[in-house]
Design a protein around this nucleic acid. Structure first.
Lengths: 152, 152
DNA sequence: GAACAATAGGTGTATATACTCTCACTCATG
DNA sequence: CATGAGTGAGAGTATATACACCTATTGTTC
């Protein structure tokens, strides 16, 4: 059963089981819901999320923010640049001059506060659609997956 | 309690709860595991997944493949182009000349078969790390999320 | 205190993703 | 069969993502 043909049969039968594929698929699907709802704000869910996390951690360095969101540091650098260009965040040198400290601007806080009801709308749609119980289970599963992947 | 300050307090407290943010975070984390393991094949998990899905559905049109993977059609077009350039798939005109039919090449089947053990390694790491039971619950939750998002 | 390791960050390049717009083709309808 | 609606696909543009490599600063060790 180790010949090429049976390997291919195996691949065919397993093509829908990939943990990564299923996670990415769900992320794409849900991203479209949130992006659609957030559209009036001119922000995507990724950007809105960075604003929220920054709010919760500020002042915060690029690396700490990247760790917290499980994003590559260089990815975050580029995402931050877009928000900075729009005047929603400030990125300035820290005491340790290797570090950059990220903070929200007044405009950024405004954008976050005014987008919150829209975010809540999308969130409610998903959470109620799943049901609280299922949502809690999913949330826990996602959290476990992240820990597991990071530990590797 | 509807003033700006309390809105911001709310945003701060909810910044970790976002369904979309959590899904995307988990997808990033797991993608790194799979991409790392698949590295010897020169394929990323996205590409490997497209090969697998194509295998299961071939011959398949671009739109049907896009629907099945919950990917925007234009995204898939670009992903397919990379695989075509490497000679792993063939994209040719269908009987309905608007359609493009995607099939695996011999080289594509070879890549899929030879990458399968590596994929299995990553998959096992995640599934066993979570435990079968939790993994099944997660899988079901992801599936529900996709249905829900698509229905919108 | 000079040399080197360690840490924080950015650039170049490549893939992944989706929206808008456009083109090509098919089909239904008169 | 002409014409317009509907369908399948690609191009232009912009964001999201990460790896390899690089620079600047800090800390450590002799």
């Amino acid at each position: 059963m180790r010949d090429r043909a049976s390997q291919l049969e195996l691949a065919r039968s397993k093509s829908g089981e990939c943990a990564c594929g299923n996670l990415r698929k769900a992320a794409r699907a849900v991203t479209q819901v949130y992006d659609e709802v957030l559209r009036p704000t001119g922000l995507r869910v990724t950007q809105f999320g960075i604003l929220g996390t920054t709010m919760a951690m500020e002042p915060v360095t690029v690396t700490r923010l990247a760790d917290s969101t499980v994003t590559d540091r260089t990815t975050l650098t580029r995402n931050l640049k877009l928000l900075e260009k729009r005047g929603l965040i400030r990125v300035q040198m820290g005491n340790d001059r290797r570090e950059r400290e990220v903070t929200l601007t007044a405009q950024g806080r405004e954008a976050l506060a005014s987008g919150l009801p829209l975010w809540q709308k999308a969130q409610t749609r998903v959470v109620q659609g799943l049901g609280e119980e299922r949502w809690n289970a999913l949330r826990e599963g996602l959290s476990a997956v992240v820990s597991l992947a990071r530990a590797t």
